[in-house]
Amino acid sequence: MIEPLRVIKTTPQLTALIPISVPREDVRKVMGPGLAELKVGVAAQNVAVVGPWFTHHIRNPGEVFDFEISLPVATPVAPANRMKPGQWPAMSIVQTTYHGGYEGLGSAWGEFIGIIKTAGHRAADGLYECYAVGPDMSADPSAWRTVLSKELLAS
């Protein structure tokens, strides 16, 4: 289930990120270890995490997923191993929240993109998924919440 569309303007947010490029079938293999590596890297620099983790897919996923595992941070991180400093930019986005387990994300994205088009919005290539409530907070997948976002293009 997804919530109704929201159109919002983001503000810049510093991030720590690890860039990843893997075949579609390997995403589940790299996500957990990549997030753990990022958390360790941020903690080693005594940088505060200021919100839930998210992924930024540089382009809409296809056979290869080019994305960044990201954490919003209070101050810039220094590059270390695969970790790099980044920033979520100020932009207009269209957003919804998906309720449920990760296996339903593909169909949620399909529904979301259809609603975006029906509403007359034009969205940029790429996407953001913010894992607001996940398995680290609840063992019940029906309680999980993933915020889906697409950057809007100027009309």
Rank of each mutant, 00 (worst) to 15 (best):
A44S: 14
V147Y: 01
H99M: 06
P33D: 08
Y102P: 04
V77Y: 05
L17R: 15
H121W: 13
A119Y: 02
S70T: 10
W88V: 03
L38D: 03
F67W: 13
T96N: 05
I20W: 03
R24T: 00
G62H: 05
K29H: 13
G134N: 13
M137P: 00
E68H: 14
K150C: 06
V27T: 11
P72A: 07
W88C: 00
E151L: 04
V7H: 15
I8L: 15
F65M: 06
A78K: 14
I93P: 04
I69T: 04
E111M: 11
Q13D: 05
G62I: 00
W88R: 08
S92I: 00
E63A: 09
A143S: 08
K117Y: 12
A44Y: 07
K150Y: 10
T55I: 10
G104I: 04
V50E: 09
L5V: 08
G86I: 13
S107C: 01
L152Q: 07
P76L: 09
G62C: 03
T10Y: 07
F54R: 05
K84C: 06
L14Y: 08
G110C: 04
L17W: 03
L5M: 11
K29R: 13
P33I: 12
I115G: 00
Q45I: 12
T15S: 11
P23L: 02
L127F: 08
P72C: 10
V22F: 06
E63Q: 11
D66T: 07
A78I: 06
D136Q: 13
S149Q: 14
A78W: 04
Y131D: 05
G41Y: 13
Y128C: 08
K84I: 08
V94L: 11
G126T: 01
S138T: 04
L127Q: 12
H99W: 12
V50T: 15
I8V: 14
A124Y: 06
E63R: 07
T75N: 10
G110A: 10
V49W: 07
D26C: 03
A90W: 02
I8E: 15
P33R: 10
I113Q: 06
I113V: 13
T146M: 05
G134A: 07
G62Q: 09
L17S: 12
P141I: 04
G32Q: 12
E63Y: 05
G104R: 03
V73F: 08
S155K: 14
E151I: 14
